[in-house]
Nucleic acid binder design. Structure first.
Lengths: 349, 349
DNA sequence: CTGTTAGCGCCTTCAA
DNA sequence: TTGAAGGCGCTAACAG
């Protein structure tokens, strides 16, 4: 039998095997489970690997073993710091698992998300993490049929696809309204950009609670389709002042917007929190340092990423208890000066 | 509902072929180059694919064709907005290419980066984008030996590995010193956190230019190993005030730090820009909106991501002209109120 | 335009 | 502890 002709100059398992004087499968074992290979062989193999600069071929490995170590992660945005914090949690948690993350960006588009779900599934991922609970029907069906663990994150729902790590946007928004009320504010406004499903839920949470307390006024709801940013916050606040100058406090659907409101209010010499209470959403790092420090809702973004990975890893292992599959985290109101009229001026932190 | 499924009931190309009454290779062609398949067959195949819910197996495809469509991207941080903007550019540019991005996070560690280079190479990526030009010798050797296009981004060097898209950190920093000088400041300070290679170059750019102009004072160089953040900016500024209260302007190695300085200065009733000129680096979105608006160096992050992908795509196609392989972008000083003593108070934007 | 023949590089199974 | 045989699902290179 003629020697197999090699069409590429790649170093393969066979090359290493020959170099080490063992068979290919032994090299394979030596890489995946070194303890199952005798020490002498192991040493020779390792030496051969180093000498030849062997790098395993993942695709071949995936094909033969029918599994990949790819954890797919679909987020609506890579720039939004909300999701970059989730990423951080994911990356930190992934280390212990031997999995590798692959991020995809749906740009807040359900149909793009569906395409990405397809793409990921084509790679037979070890697991999949998707953002939110509002997949398209087809996307949902694909995920339900997927033979890998699936985790929905950043929101809660009554009928998750598989596993879930999230918190209630509705409740968070409602708690902000109550906080304003407790601080003595009576004419709350809400500012919101890009109306993705979770933003919408926050808006309705705000509305419901305000209605319940008898302090809702539709004039004080200002939204835009544009993406959320500090600049948008300035703009929306200007719009609000034009439409409903009587507003005495404002819930911004995220911290970017709230920061914009703070800066714009400063320019207009509107005193926060005396003349205007401000509350954001997410608790970005900067929010604690602006003047006045921003009251906001701290969302468990890092932890969400971490836990999602943990759930996938657990599902890949022996068995998961049903109780573990749905993790409802808490988003906590962090009260700072921007919503406390009793505040007395800038102080060093 | 998920997991634990027996792994033999996958729909394969053969299943589709049988269903459509053609051979597997025809189905394969129909997916990759529909125009090379007769219309009737194509219709039957498409119908079969839909009926069976066929999803191609990437690993098998990669193995057989000896190529993947994975573009590996190694960044030192996923949360740093500098890199998330690069990501945005990458994602926007990738669409036209049919490639798929895979991000890895080196956490500013050269050795982690080396590991990631190995991991990526194991997947036979279509291309690789790495941050900076300071890979470990081994990492560099791996990349030089890689049989795929490699792009270094966010910095410049005389001997790039392969292709490059970046700008000069040294020159940028020097231009900031000159700007301060022109505005009448004479005792410049520099604040810097996490001393990654690019930050270091900026510090030396600042130092050299200040020395050249005869206004350098080592007391006014304040650095820390911690990661850069708004809080760190507050802290470093406090340190500076303790060490060298005579400083009349400060170059912050990035906008996070500068924002912290602005907020901390406000708390200390230090007037910017009259008593203190402030300049940041990167031009984050928020910097234009704070009070006073922040002078900073606008770095071409989005474009860097875009161009890097374009270079890879071009290298994958027919032929690239040598001239195209090294792209030196420009980082531009954006002068705003925080460094212009002539500024007269807050104004709406 | 379509099919046949061979692998791609690795891992599973089973035997030694 | 190690090895031999076979195949994972797909595609390059040729025929037809």
């Amino acid at each position: 039998m003629p020697a197999k002709t090699k069409h590429s100059n790649r170093v393969t398992l066979d090359d290493v095997a020959r170099e080490a004087g063992v068979s290919a499968i032994t090299v394979s074992r030596c890489i995946r489970a070194p303890e199952k290979v005798a020490a002498p062989s192991r040493l020779r193999i390792q030496a051969a690997i180093d000498r030849l600069g062997y790098v395993p071929h993942m695709a071949a490995s995936a094909l033969a073993s029918r599994r990949t170590n790819v954890l797919g992660l679909i987020v609506p945005s890579v720039t939004n710091s909300v999701f970059s914090d989730v990423l951080l949690g994911v990356y930190d948690a992934i280390e212990a698992t031997g999995l590798s993350v692959q991020i995809a960006n749906s740009r807040y588009s359900p149909s793009e998300e569906e395409t990405l779900i397809r793409t990921f599934l084509a790679q037979r991922p070890a697991g999949l993490i998707v953002s939110g609970v509002d997949q398209t029907p087809t996307g949902r069906a694909l995920l339900e049929a997927a033979d890998c663990p699936v985790v929905q994150i950043m929101d809660v729902t009554d009928n998750p696809i598989d596993m879930l790590v999230g918190f209630s946007h509705f409740d968070s928004a409602a708690s902000v309204v109550r906080h304003f009320m407790e601080q003595g504010y009576r004419r709350p406004a809400i500012l919101s950009a890009r109306m993705d499903p979770r933003s919408q839920v926050r808006v309705s949470g705000f509305r419901r609670e305000a209605e319940r307390l008898g302090i809702f006024d539709p004039r004080r709801v200002v939204t835009t389709q544009g993406r959320s940013s500090v600049g948008t916050g300035c703009q929306l606040f200007a719009d609000l002042m034009a439409r409903a100058p009587d507003a005495d406090c404002v819930f911004c659907n995220n911290d970017d917007l709230a920061l914009g409101v703070l800066f714009e209010a400063a320019r207009r010499n509107i005193r926060v929190p005396e003349a205007l209470g401000v509350c954001g959403f997410n608790d970005l790092e900067i929010s604690a340092y602006v003047n006045p420090p921003l009251t906001t809702v701290a969302t468990p973004r890092y932890r969400t990423g971490q836990e999602a990975v943990r759930l996938v890893a657990a599902a890949l292992g022996p068995g998961v208890e049903e109780a573990e599959r749905h993790l409802r985290l808490e988003a906590k109101l962090v009260v700072r000066a921007s919503s406390q009229p009793g505040w007395t001026g800038p102080t060093a932190t």
